[in-house]
Design a binder for these strands. Structure first.
Lengths: 194, 194
DNA sequence: TGATTTTATTGACATACATCAATTTTCAGT
DNA sequence: ACTGAAAATTGATGTATGTCAATAAAATCA
């Protein structure tokens, strides 16, 4: 097994591929090494790809009409990221995606995915399950925004994503939680006093 | 085409089935006539079905630790409803589902769906697309909760779902928007004055 | 290591929305 | 149509979180 193929089995952990299948996938994935602060998708772009994060950290965010940024998603090692709403419906992006840290990612186009699904049906199942998890996490987030205080959401965030907390600034976390950096700072102080 | 089969083509509008396929589906769907105020799913139940709403109105809601209800989703004519997070991951429900109005719905089990997918692959595509739309609407809702005021969210709700507004109480809408009935009432007054 | 920029904290004050209690309005059943 | 219950509204007041301005701390880089 060469280096490229080992990345395939790392990405699609629970699937056993034949040599031929691995090569098929390998040809569809494009590796990108990105510096910190690089924007790989902008609002109004056509969204034809999704990205696997090998290492580093990225985020998707939305800029509202007053110019404020709102973080929808972070992605670190072994996460997939895109503007999925646009990706699925073949509409223009509403989100931005940028690297928060230097990152290595693998890009795959929608067309490539469709081709692969025909050859390797297990891949369709793989992505469907990813999708279902993303859906569940969105639902959890909506319920949290309805039922929890800012402090509760912060505590829940850092315990659910301890690895993300290390890679992102507090103002990123604040924009994910829907609060200001000042409020987050006060919440952190309050917690540290307990 | 008999009555039962015409419901099949109503539910799966864009798919053309053979007579045999229609009968196959028909045997998996169970019709339920429900009075107003009936709970068809409770937190901690095993979730093995989803429901197609033929008419009437239902909602899924969550009860938080302080006992408050938070509405996640409404469903009227031609919508599907379930606790999808639990449905997909085969975990216990966290949501409740109840009829808000007298309703006729069709129930289908996960097992039946899996069987049908093997016989009629187009159905898998049909449900995948439903799923993608639900995902997109969840994303939109998260962004709204991050970026919009209660008033903006209410205005957006009534223009996006004018048909739902007719079937539900204001306190249901309030619990969907994450505000109190009093605040909703004041928002409504403010709008009526404009 | 020191200088500069970026990020986080703090204080004073403003505001959106919640809470509680009292009515008023609407709806449902007889 | 009448009556009681459910839903919506209103007012007074409280609270969580936002805003703005200043400063402190941390990170970056020459």
């Amino acid at each position: 097994m060469n280096i490229e193929n080992s990345i395939i089995s790392e990405i699609f952990k629970d699937i056993a591929f034949s040599k031929k299948e691995e090569n098929l996938i390998e040809n569809k994935l494009k590796k990108l090494n990105l510096k910190k602060g690089v924007t790989i998708l902008k609002a109004d772009d056509k969204v034809i790809s999704q990205y696997y994060v090998y290492n580093g950290c990225l985020r998707t965010y939305f800029i509202d009409k007053s110019g404020k940024e709102h973080t929808l998603q972070f992605a670190i090692n072994d996460w997939w990221i895109s503007d999925y709403t646009a990706f699925f419906t073949t509409t223009k992006a509403v989100m931005y995606i940028e690297t928060i840290e230097e990152a290595t990612i693998y890009k795959i186009s929608k067309k490539s995915m469709e081709d692969l699904f025909i050859e390797i049906p297990q891949l369709e199942t793989f992505f469907r399950k990813k999708m279902e998890k993303a859906f569940a996490s969105f639902q959890k987030r909506i319920l949290a925004s309805l039922a929890q205080s800012a402090k509760e959401r912060y505590v829940s965030f850092i315990s659910t994503y301890p690895n993300i907390e290390q890679s992102v600034k507090n103002y990123h976390i604040a924009s994910y939680l829907g609060i200001t950096t000042e409020t987050l700072s006060r919440i952190r102080k309050e917690i540290s006093l307990n």
